[in-house]
Amino acid sequence: MKIKNSPILLSILFTLLALVFPIISGAIITVKNINSLSTIYLIHFAAFTCGILVTLWIMKKSKFSLQDFGFRRFKAEAWMVVIVISELIAFFNGLTHKDSFSVQYVFTLLLFVIAVGICEELIFRGLIFKYLSAKGLKIAILGSSILFGIGHLANLASGADLVMTLLQITYAFLFGLVCAEIVTKTKSIIFPIIWHATHDFIAFMTDGEPTVLAVSIYIIHCMVLIGLSIYFWRALFIKKDAMKLKNTESYV
């Protein structure tokens, strides 16, 4: 079986590709014993920027155009307000790293999250989603989301807590599920990129000790994602299937 003719195998390889860049940057930070947050963010930014370039090169070499991968404009819709409000709720948890706030810190963090948002969305909602679409839209949505969640297992290699990593995997799956549904609905990858980068930026700015409030906000975010995933799934498949069934019955 040739790799290029196997969407599932290709998707697994693309997932491994997504893990290469943070592993390399993490190794550099560990070996050099770097403690400055701004420097850490810059190293990660450089690694993920390389990831973006490699991913764009793969896209250009593929049989698809950049538009096929979701490089299209999107129109503002009402459901976007729900996402914006849910993200802003995180600020109720307060700001973290207050003592280290500086223009340099915020700027380097911004560079880092933008690079992560672009790189991961191009791989998971771009490459993986497009190639899995050959197996059907439902498989593309669920498959890219599962791989996105599994990809966060790499956090264990950096010494992250097992329980927190499992929670991140669950959240990543739900987040990936909604993003994949948005790509299916809008035919554009732009909003997921913006949302991904914004979410990470807010998370870094507000992440602190796992207090009752912090856990409550986390649960609210998950509930919002579950609600959105059901909303989009019904709009994309259940309502369409019902319409097809109704049209078929009208001809009987």
Rank of each mutant, 00 (worst) to 15 (best):
I58C: 05
I89A: 09
I8G: 05
G126S: 09
G151H: 00
F92S: 07
A140Q: 07
I28P: 04
F71V: 10
P22F: 03
I141G: 01
F21Y: 12
S65P: 13
I43D: 13
P22M: 00
S11P: 01
L42S: 00
T39M: 14
I3H: 02
L111M: 12
N5W: 00
T108R: 00
G136L: 09
L56Y: 03
D99G: 12
I3F: 05
L37R: 12
E77N: 13
I123S: 07
I150H: 06
A134F: 05
T15C: 13
S65C: 09
K130E: 14
L19D: 03
L132V: 01
L13E: 11
G94M: 02
I114D: 03
L132S: 10
F124E: 06
F148V: 06
G117M: 01
S62K: 11
L17Q: 11
L127M: 13
D99Q: 12
S6Q: 10
A76I: 15
L110Y: 00
G149T: 07
R73P: 00
A78D: 06
T39A: 11
T108K: 04
A78R: 12
E120F: 05
K61V: 07
I52L: 01
L9G: 05
L16P: 01
I29N: 04
I123D: 02
K138A: 07
I52H: 01
I23D: 09
L16I: 14
V103F: 14
F107Q: 04
L95W: 09
V54I: 13
L17K: 09
N35T: 15
S145G: 08
V113N: 00
A47T: 09
L17W: 11
L37A: 14
K60E: 10
F112Y: 15
I123Q: 02
N33C: 01
I58K: 12
R72G: 08
A47P: 00
I146Q: 02
I128V: 12
L110I: 07
L53W: 08
G94F: 03
K98I: 10
A18F: 09
H44F: 15
L16V: 13
F48A: 08
L13M: 13
L37G: 07
M80R: 03
I12G: 00
E87N: 12
T30L: 13
M59H: 10
I23P: 03
L142S: 02
T39S: 15
K130D: 05
A115W: 08
N5E: 14
P22I: 08
S6R: 11
G151L: 07
G26H: 08
S86H: 06
T96Q: 07
L111N: 01
K61L: 10
D68I: 08
A115L: 10
G26A: 07
T96S: 13
W79K: 13
L95A: 02
S25R: 09
S133M: 03
P7D: 04
F107N: 08
F69Q: 07
L37K: 15
N35C: 02
L132K: 04
E87H: 10
I128R: 04
F107T: 15
I29G: 11
I3L: 14
K63V: 14
C119L: 08
K63F: 14
L122M: 03
T96E: 08
L132T: 04
I43T: 13
K98C: 00
L42K: 03
